[in-house]
Structures are given as C-alpha cells and as structure tokens.
C-alpha cells in the first residue's frame, strides 16, 4: 500500500521536473512512422541470391556433402536435364491440370457451403462439425480407401486435392462472411433493401477480401497435396517425379523437382495477387 503510494509520488515528481526542463514550448519529436510495409522488390532477390551463394560455397568447400544436399550447380544441371527431356511438358501439364481441376472443384464446393454457412444459421450449425471433422483427415492415410472408391485414374488424384481444399475454403469463406461489418448490413436494412440485395451488394463484396486471402492458403495446400495425389499410380507429374527421385536417392533430381514445385507456387501466388488487385479495386 505504502510502496504503491511512493511510486505514484515518484512518477508525479518526475513529470513535474521533466516539464520544468523542457519548458512550456518544448518541441516533441515526431514519434509516428515505421511499421508501414514498404515495397522493396530487390531485397527479396538479393536474399535468394545470397542464400544460393552460401549454399554453393558450402558445397564447393566440401563442408556440405552431396549426400546431405546437392550443390546448386548439380541441382541446376538436373533441372536443365529434366526440362530437356521429351516428357517434361507431359510431367508439368499433368500436374497443373490436377491442381487446377482439384482446386477449382474444391473451391466451388467450399464457396457454396461456406456462403450458406455464413448466411443461414441452420446451415452453419449443421455443417460446422462436419467440416471441422473433415479438415484434419490426413490424405496419405486414406489413400488405400480412395483407391478402392475411385480407382487409380485421375478421379482419385483430383479427389485428394478437392478434399484438401474444401474444408479450409469453407472455413475462410464463412468467417469472411461473418466479418462483413454489421453496420453496413443494418444500414442496408434501414434503407429498405431486399434480402437478396443485401446478400449480393453488401455481404458478397464485403466478404471478398477474406475469401481471396483464403485462396492463397488453399492454392498452397493444393500444391502440397499434389505429391500425395501423385502417390496413386501416377505415370507423369511433378509429384511423381519427386517421389521417384527420392526412392532412387537421386537427390539432385529431388531438389530440382521441389524447386519446380515452389516455382509453380510463386507463379500461382503472383496470379492471385493480380486477381486480388482486379477484384478489390473498389477498396
């Protein structure tokens, strides 16, 4: 009790002495600023180049054995060999079509269910436990079941990606709908807008930023699941290529395949960035 009182007294003394020193017209330094993200494209490139340079140096000096990690030069030449092979286009196109079809189907299904859950309480109460239950199912563990259900053709490979994309899309969509400011909806109601107009003109555009942010996550999930999907009897595909290289301990091809996958991820992320800019011009 007494020590607390003393602290208060100390603080007030400090304040009073401080104001004496600075005088009544003291100039206070501007303390705002910072914490603003500023675009700085070249630093990203410099970081990548620096990392690759350190990696090559470590490999060249013998500190990093090829068994642990092949050098960038080895990976680069494996990548060039891969790209020069006759079946390269069929490898890439097989994977891209699986990712595209799986992601599209999963996203459309997820958007429908997610919007319904955002708008209708009954749909939310009914679907939320099911979606939450589906989310953590490991796709690799249920591959034998998927093979029995759907065979080893494209449908089972697509299904892996659809299932993986669906739940996160539902969750991001319905929370985006949830986060549309209530004030806007109430305003629409007081202006006498129909239910349909409120959904189409306020809720859907208002939830778009959240939905698009969800796309970035689900697109990455689709690429991650590509390798699992191509565990099922895939003759061609980037995932199949990575799996084979791993099985044969051809680590240079393994890393090259992984780089190919992450390059695909970068391209998709860039495309989504363009989509966001185009669709969210109104912001």
């Amino acid at each position: 009790m007494s020590s607390a009182l003393k602290l208060v007294q100390d603080a007030s003394q400090r304040n009073s002495t401080g104001s004496k020193d600075e005088g009544p017209e003291a100039v206070v330094r501007f303390r705002g600023g910072g914490f603003d993200p500023r675009p700085n494209a070249w630093i990203g490139w410099a970081a990548i180049i620096g990392l690759v340079a350190i990696w090559q140096l470590a490999a060249a000096s013998g500190y990093l054995s090829p068994l642990v990690l092949p050098s960038p030069v080895q990976v680069g030449s494996a990548l060039l060999k891969m790209a020069a092979a006759d079946d390269f286009t069929s490898q890439v196109s097989a994977s891209l079509s699986r990712v595209a079809s799986g992601w599209l189907i999963g996203t459309i299904m997820g958007l429908i269910v997610g919007c319904a859950m955002g708008v209708f309480s009954i749909a939310r109460a009914g679907a939320l436990p099911i979606v939450s239950g589906l989310y953590p199912i490991p796709m690799i563990a249920i591959l034998p079941l998927l093979i029995v259900w759907l065979g080893i053709g494209e449908s089972s490979k697509t299904a892996v990606i659809v299932l993986g994309v669906f739940s996160p899309t539902v969750i991001s969509t319905f929370s985006a709908v949830d986060n549309v400011p209530r004030g806007l909806i109430r305003m629409g109601q007081s202006f006498g807008l129909s239910w349909r107009s409120i959904v189409l003109k306020i809720i859907l555009p208002g939830s778009l930023p959240g939905v698009l942010a969800g796309f970035r996550i689900t697109a990455a999930i689709a690429l991650i699941l590509l390798v699992s999907a191509e565990m099922i009897g895939a003759e061609y595909g980037i995932g199949a290529l990575i799996l084979l290289a791993g099985n044969l301990m051809q680590t240079d091809r393994l890393v090259a395949g992984v780089l190919l996958l992450s390059a695909t991820g970068l391209v998709i992320s860039w495309l989504l960035g363009r989509l966001e800019k185009a669709l969210l011009k109104w912001r």
């Binding site: 591959l143 034998p144 079941l145 093979i147 029995v148 065979g151 080893i152 565990m231 099922i232 009897g233 895939a234 003759e235 199949a240 799996l243 084979l244």
Partner: peptide, 19 residues
C-alpha cells in the same frame, strides 16, 4: 507398371480391381 508407393495401397488397388 503402376507405382502405388506402399504395400497398403497395392492391396487396396488389387482387391478393388483398380490394378
């Protein structure tokens, strides 16, 4: 030749007639 990655997947595939 159809690569299925694991014996479990092979069993599933041959039981269901997928291979």
């Amino acid at each position: 030749v159809v690569p299925l990655q694991s014996v479990a997947n092979m069993v599933g595939a041959v039981k269901s007639g997928a291979v």
